[in-house]
């Protein structure tokens, strides 16, 4: 087998995937339970607007939320890429899949950064 220098992308993408998997596992269940299930079904009273805005204006909140959004998207990109490769045997379209997945994560991260920087 060849011993050519490997591309450095895989370790970096795997680290982003892992960091995203970890932060998503730790933070997403509670957030999704509150805003996706508990508040809509009136199991709990949603916080008022002023309180949420104050929380969002805190720079630490914004930093955490940006980390969560960007890393979670790279987690999705990496996992979904391999799910398409293996689960649907689409590896022959790998260029398109890579562009779609990681490109989507980059675009999503930029949108998150914009929305978090422009919190009113």
């Amino acid at each position: 087998m060849t011993t050519r220098r490997r591309p450095a992308a895989e370790p970096l993408l795997w680290l982003l995937f892992s960091a995203g998997g970890m932060i998503a596992a730790l933070l997403v269940p509670i957030l999704l339970f509150l805003f996706g299930v508990a508040f809509p079904l009136d199991l709990l009273t949603p916080p008022d607007h002023a309180h949420l805005l104050a929380v969002l204006r805190n720079p630490i909140t914004r930093l955490v939320l940006f980390g969560l959004c960007a890393l979670a998207l790279f987690h999705w990109a990496h996992r979904f890429r391999y799910t398409l490769y293996d689960g649907l045997q689409l590896k022959r379209f790998s260029v398109v899949i890579i562009l779609f997945c990681y490109g989507g994560a980059v675009v999503g991260s930029i949108i998150s950064a914009y929305l978090l920087l422009t919190v009113g």
């Binding site: 995203g20 957030l31 999704l32 805003f35 959004c69 979670a72 987690h75 998150s112």
Partner: peptide
């Protein structure tokens, strides 16, 4: 669904 959550959060 993790990606969906990010969309919902945004």
């Amino acid at each position: 669904f993790v990606a969906w959550f990010v969309v919902y959060l945004l």
